[in-house]
Amino acid sequence: MLRNIFLKTFYEHRRGLLWWALGLLAYAAMIIGFYPAMDQMPDINQMLEMLPKELMAAFVGGLTDMSSPVGYLNSQIFFLMGPLLLIIFAIGQGSAGLAGEEERGTLDLLLANPVSRARVVAEKLAALITMTLALAAALWAGLAIGAPLVKMEIATGRLIEATLGSALLALVFGVLALALGAATGNRSLSVGVTSALAVGAYRLNAMSAAITALEPYRILSPFHYATGADPLANGLNWVHTVVLAALVVVFAAAALFMFRRRDLAV
């Protein structure tokens, strides 16, 4: 487990990762567990329609269907909570990757070895991506195992696609946090700026479902590309997926560029 930077990053975070995975599994199981109760309330959709749509938008965007499996899972997981939890993890990991090591002062030792800065960035990035995907898999597993138990009809393939969409969205912010850490060596700055951007992006996407004036700006929010085309119902929209992947690539390139040209702090 200490063969390289990638594996060692895993090794160091093994406990945290395990708790995160268990937490996501438990969360998925809990949501699934409440589904039968929701299913028995056919009036829930009418109730939702009575609420002010701006209020609804803040939490579930344009969703108005809570009783079908897709509507229920979207409102409870894929529209906000699933991506949010993965984003929190990814931002934490992304900012810890390079800036954390620099702030704790271990970077000098790491780079005393014959390893290039590019390799350090690449391995930290690979660890971030793998861990985020592993947690997305835990979330997916909770849903995929739980759904048949409560006779919730949901296509496993679509479930994978929706989870992947959330993971990719989380990676956009996680890799941005990595890049900000690489550029500044400041972990709190990286966490703060990226979190603020994530919250802003979510609000923009959610509110634009209700407020027409915001609609044209929706395309600026990464959330739009992760949830706008409803991957749980329709599968991944390839254009949207490419946009998210492109953001990840751009931020990764920025991390590499900034980390290579900078003076490193003691």
């Binding site: 200490l2 063969r3 060692k8 704790r104 271990t106 000098d108 030792l109 790491l110 005393a112 070895n113």
Partner: peptide, 27 residues
Amino acid sequence: GYLPGELSLYEGLTGRDFLRYMANLRG
């Protein structure tokens, strides 16, 4: 071979794990 002036090690590792990691990175 380099010894940093303000030495900070990976606090969570044992001494053996730390040295193994350094030896692996160096080859």
